[in-house]
């Protein structure tokens, strides 16, 4: 069965690029436009990996990460944070919150896929 990946980003075009690439590789994709939206869409189904932007309205990536670590259903889900190189401070904050995997924006779909495959194969 195809593995499910959630992409959380406030940019619709990033979500689109990512989800096209993921679907082509054989993953199922759930899109969410911010942390709050994502939490609302996590209804107990198995999610194998979460790609999460840092800077988002409503609920940013770091807060989302913290809330996931408290969630019994999803606390072992690998999370890749998407960030820009200019956000070193955010990165430190994210690391403190338990984010281990980072992909720097802008990325090519291939870069993102190879990062994902280190954690979850399609």
């Amino acid at each position: 069965m195809a593995k499910t990946i959630m992409i959380i980003d406030d940019s619709a075009s990033i979500r689109m690029v990512v989800s096209i690439a993921l679907k082509k590789t054989g993953y199922e994709v759930i899109e969410a436009k911010d942390g709050k939206d994502a939490l609302g869409k996590m209804t107990g189904q198995k999610i194998h990996l979460i790609l999460c932007d840092v800077n988002m309205p409503n609920m940013d990536g770091i807060s989302f990460l913290k809330s996931i670590k408290q969630n019994q259903n999803y606390k072992f889900t690998p999370i890749i944070m998407l960030t820009t190189e200019s956000q070193e401070a955010k990165k430190q904050e994210g690391k403190a919150a338990g984010a281990k995997a980072w992909v720097v924006k802008p990325f090519k779909p291939e870069q993102m896929l190879s990062a994902i495959e280190k954690l979850v194969l399609p």
Binding site: D10, S11, S13, V17, N55, P57, T84, K105, P106, F107
Partner: peptide
């Protein structure tokens, strides 16, 4: 913050697209 985020999003999307 909203201003920054909007610019940030444009930049990020442009990079990826």
């Amino acid at each position: 913050n909203a201003l920054f985020r909007a610019a940030h999003t444009i930049k990020g999307s442009a990079g990826i697209v």
